[in-house]
């Protein structure tokens, strides 16, 4: 039993030290990543720019409404879709 106890004590020391080391490294690595990302990719990639305002659309709806429609389409299509024409029914 004494063997078990000393082994458990050793495991406690090694275990806690390893967990602390790993999490300290995660924190250090995380900070490093933040600095690298801030340096090399400081801007969030914007989804593909929507084509210039279609003339017909501009005539039919005001800027705020069109922006809302564009945003909704962007979100629904994951940035792949774009508004080409807005038609009043």
């Amino acid at each position: 039993m004494e063997d078990n106890l000393s082994f458990a004590l050793m495991l406690m020391g090694v275990g806690l030290a390893t967990v602390f080391t790993v999490l300290l490294l995660v924190i250090g690595f995380g900070n490093l990543l933040i600095k690298m990302v801030n340096k090399f990719a400081p801007e969030e990639e914007k989804p593909k720019q929507i084509a210039s305002k279609p003339a017909a659309a501009a005539a039919l709806v005001d800027g705020a409404v069109q922006q809302a429609i564009n945003k909704a389409v962007e979100q629904l299509t994951g940035g792949k879709g774009r508004v080409e024409k807005i038609v009043k029914l």
């Binding site: 078990n4 106890l5 458990a8 495991l11 275990g15 806690l16 999490l23 924190i27």
Partner: peptide, 25 residues
């Protein structure tokens, strides 16, 4: 990120009970 280190402190229970359970035989 700095607060993440407290996740390590909370692993104390694992190793403390390992010690207790092993000591019971």
């Amino acid at each position: 990120l700095k607060l993440a280190i407290f996740g390590a402190g909370a692993q104390f229970g694992i190793f403390a009970v390992l010690l207790v359970a092993a000591s019971t035989g």
